[in-house]
Amino acid sequence: CHSECLGNCSQPDDPTKCVACRNFYLDGRCVETCPPPYYHFQDWRCVNFSFCQDLHHKCKNSRRQGCHQYVIHNNKCIPECPSGYTMNSSNLLCTPCLGPCPKVCHLLEGEKTIDSVTSAQELRGCTVINGSLIINIRGGNNLAAELEANLGLIEEISGYLKIRRSYALVSLSFFRKLRLIRGETLEIGNYSFYALDNQNLRQLWDWSKHNLTITQGKLFFHYNPKLCLSEIHKMEEVSGTKGRQERNDIALKTNGDQASCENELLKFSYIRTSFDKILLRWEPYWPPDFRDLLGFMLFYKEAPYQNVTEFDGQDACGSNSWTVVDIDPPLRSNDPKSQNHPGWLMRGLKPWTQYAIFVKTLVTFSDERRTYGAKSDIIYVQTDATNPSVPLDPISVSNSSSQIILKWKPPSDPNGNITHYLVFWERQAEDSELFELDYCLKGLKLPSRTWSPPFESEDSQKHNQSEYEDSAGECCSCPKTDSQILKELEESSFRKTFEDYLHNVVFVPRKT
């Protein structure tokens, strides 16, 4: 048989008469490798580009789960590009990614509803959504962080984005990388972005840091009482949809009607710091009717980097990364020049730590249904340095008659930039024990000054392991946590139920 035959053949030295091919099969003959313009397919066939392209389009058009959109890589027609490569849609070739590779997620039936953290986790790592997304989240724990972890990498949506009755959302900033909504599939009414009845939605994105392009379709905003109209108009300008909307697409009466839409800028007039305090004062603000001013709200939190936005980490279910302080308005003076500047002394802060701070007014709604208010920009203030805590785990070892090696770990709280350490030492008198000992005694162990690591005695271990207080009263049991108490109650309830079950099964009433 021919060298490319495997198993047997019907005619000697003829690659077209093989029972099976050793390498690849091409047009009725066995070959060692697939010549151009053919590609290896499933490690035994040679196919042309049209064959591989037909497989790709067949799966793409069917949208069946589990099928493969075949691509070409290293002269092979394979189910998908290997790690580190992405497909070129024009020629199906796998090309190296520039940075992290995109991950295209194809949605069944063309859309997916995100109504819980669990459903959001199914899209973790996706960068391109081939379909439409509907966000409908009523509640949950730590929602802002969970949504950002699972949806934060999405850069492109081919269909539309719909935010509907998501009472738990305060902001859409968890879509931190969303840059493009194509609108290839539109919501009824030709809408590519749809926001309806979101009672706590206050911000779409921080438009000073976020760009969003909507290729096709219109915007729809109705019944978002805490979303200011200025935020919607800003989205029109940034996304390129200005002029597409009709009169009733953006409701003037049901958007922002319960919001404090600040239209003035508060400026800080005085800032002073110490290692654990920050004193702030800002310019006074009074609405047209000074009785509408209820006070100020001061927001602050630790910020290692200057990239904080107002609604980071917030949701309507209680999660809030900001510390909020309510401040009463100052006494009002008739003389504008003698107006008191409101302020606040922030206490209990960490030394040498940068804080993000902003302040906003708290006002009631005027009778004319106009909203007044003022808010400052987010500023960054760093507390002063102070003395560091003591170095940890000092170790001293003498390696000769004239040297001592000293080692330690950095302090747990540096409280500033540590530039150097101060080492103090003092000579001590020799131990009298060394002169009084009889060095001729056998088995004498000389006193040693070398360091030995501390260890816990058996008594201390027994005390720590004991669940009861000892007789001397030195140790006591740790208080039980809520989960331990709940577990004990469940076990007790189970024992009672099981005992009742045994009584009912074992003891049967005697027939009379």
Results as ranks from 00 to 15, higher is better:
103 K>W: 04
105 C>E: 00
106 H>T: 11
106 H>D: 04
106 H>G: 06
107 L>H: 11
108 L>I: 08
110 G>T: 05
112 K>V: 06
115 D>G: 05
117 V>M: 14
118 T>K: 09
122 E>V: 13
123 L>V: 11
125 G>S: 09
125 G>V: 05
126 C>L: 00
126 C>Y: 03
128 V>A: 06
129 I>W: 05
129 I>S: 01
132 S>A: 06
132 S>P: 02
136 N>Q: 01
136 N>R: 06
139 G>N: 09
140 G>A: 15
141 N>A: 15
141 N>T: 08
141 N>H: 13
142 N>D: 09
146 E>K: 15
146 E>Y: 15
147 L>N: 03
147 L>E: 01
148 E>S: 06
148 E>C: 07
149 A>D: 10
149 A>Q: 13
150 N>D: 06
150 N>L: 03
150 N>M: 07
151 L>S: 01
151 L>T: 04
152 G>W: 11
152 G>I: 00
153 L>W: 14
153 L>M: 12
153 L>K: 13
154 I>S: 01
158 S>Y: 11
159 G>V: 03
159 G>L: 00
160 Y>N: 04
160 Y>I: 01
162 K>P: 00
162 K>A: 02
165 R>M: 09
166 S>D: 03
166 S>A: 13
167 Y>S: 03
168 A>K: 02
168 A>P: 15
169 L>S: 07
169 L>N: 01
170 V>E: 10
171 S>A: 11
172 L>W: 00
172 L>V: 15
173 S>K: 13
174 F>C: 13
174 F>H: 05
174 F>M: 05
175 F>M: 04
176 R>C: 07
176 R>A: 06
176 R>I: 07
177 K>F: 06
179 R>I: 12
181 I>L: 06
181 I>A: 00
184 E>V: 13
187 E>W: 15
189 G>T: 04
192 S>L: 00
193 F>H: 01
193 F>R: 00
198 N>V: 03
198 N>E: 01
198 N>M: 05
199 Q>D: 15
199 Q>Y: 08
199 Q>F: 14
200 N>F: 07
200 N>R: 09
200 N>Y: 11
200 N>T: 02
201 L>Q: 01
202 R>K: 14
203 Q>M: 11
204 L>T: 08
204 L>M: 14
204 L>D: 00
205 W>A: 02
205 W>F: 12
205 W>R: 02
205 W>I: 02
206 D>K: 14
206 D>R: 03
206 D>G: 06
207 W>N: 03
208 S>Y: 05
208 S>N: 12
209 K>M: 10
210 H>V: 08
211 N>D: 11
214 I>P: 00
215 T>P: 00
217 G>N: 03
219 L>Q: 02
220 F>Q: 02
221 F>S: 05
222 H>P: 00
223 Y>W: 09
225 P>W: 03
226 K>R: 10
227 L>V: 06
228 C>I: 03
229 L>K: 10
229 L>I: 01
232 I>P: 02
233 H>M: 00
234 K>N: 14
234 K>S: 11
234 K>H: 13
237 E>Q: 12
237 E>V: 06
238 V>W: 04
239 S>Q: 04
240 G>V: 01
242 K>W: 10
242 K>P: 05
242 K>I: 09
242 K>T: 05
242 K>Y: 07
243 G>W: 03
243 G>A: 07
244 R>C: 06
245 Q>P: 12
246 E>K: 03
246 E>P: 13
248 N>P: 11
248 N>R: 14
248 N>C: 14
250 I>A: 06
250 I>P: 09
251 A>I: 08
252 L>S: 14
253 K>E: 12
254 T>N: 14
256 G>P: 03
257 D>V: 12
257 D>H: 10
257 D>A: 15
258 Q>L: 13
259 A>C: 15
259 A>W: 09
259 A>M: 06
259 A>R: 08
260 S>P: 10
260 S>R: 12
262 E>S: 10
264 E>P: 07
268 F>A: 01
269 S>W: 09
269 S>A: 09
274 S>V: 03
277 K>A: 13
279 L>F: 07
279 L>R: 09
279 L>H: 15
282 W>N: 02
284 P>S: 03
285 Y>K: 05
287 P>H: 09
287 P>L: 09
287 P>K: 03
287 P>Q: 04
288 P>F: 12
289 D>I: 02
291 R>Q: 15
291 R>T: 14
293 L>S: 04
296 F>V: 03
298 L>K: 00
299 F>R: 14
300 Y>F: 04
301 K>S: 05
301 K>N: 13
301 K>Q: 05
302 E>P: 08
302 E>Q: 11
305 Y>W: 13
305 Y>G: 09
306 Q>E: 03
308 V>N: 04
309 T>V: 13
310 E>F: 03
311 F>Q: 11
311 F>V: 13
311 F>L: 09
311 F>E: 15
312 D>Y: 06
312 D>T: 14
313 G>S: 05
313 G>T: 13
316 A>F: 12
317 C>Y: 07
317 C>F: 15
317 C>D: 13
318 G>P: 11
322 W>R: 01
323 T>F: 08
324 V>S: 11
325 V>S: 06
325 V>I: 15
326 D>N: 15
326 D>F: 05
327 I>R: 02
328 D>A: 08
331 L>V: 12
333 S>Y: 03
333 S>V: 07
333 S>N: 01
333 S>D: 13
334 N>I: 07
334 N>G: 12
334 N>A: 08
335 D>F: 14
337 K>N: 14
338 S>P: 13
340 N>K: 06
341 H>I: 08
341 H>T: 13
341 H>F: 10
344 W>N: 10
344 W>I: 03
345 L>K: 08
345 L>C: 06
346 M>H: 01
346 M>I: 08
347 R>C: 12
347 R>M: 08
350 K>S: 10
350 K>Q: 14
351 P>R: 05
351 P>K: 04
352 W>N: 04
356 A>V: 00
358 F>Q: 09
360 K>R: 06
360 K>Y: 02
361 T>R: 04
361 T>N: 04
363 V>F: 06
365 F>P: 14
366 S>R: 10
368 E>N: 04
369 R>N: 14
369 R>I: 14
371 T>Y: 13
371 T>N: 09
373 G>Y: 03
373 G>M: 03
374 A>W: 07
374 A>R: 03
375 K>Y: 07
376 S>M: 01
378 I>R: 03
379 I>S: 06
379 I>F: 04
382 Q>K: 10
384 D>H: 13
385 A>H: 10
388 P>R: 15
393 D>K: 15
394 P>F: 02
397 V>Q: 14
398 S>I: 14
401 S>A: 13
402 S>C: 03
402 S>P: 02
403 Q>H: 09
403 Q>G: 15
405 I>N: 14
407 K>R: 11
409 K>T: 06
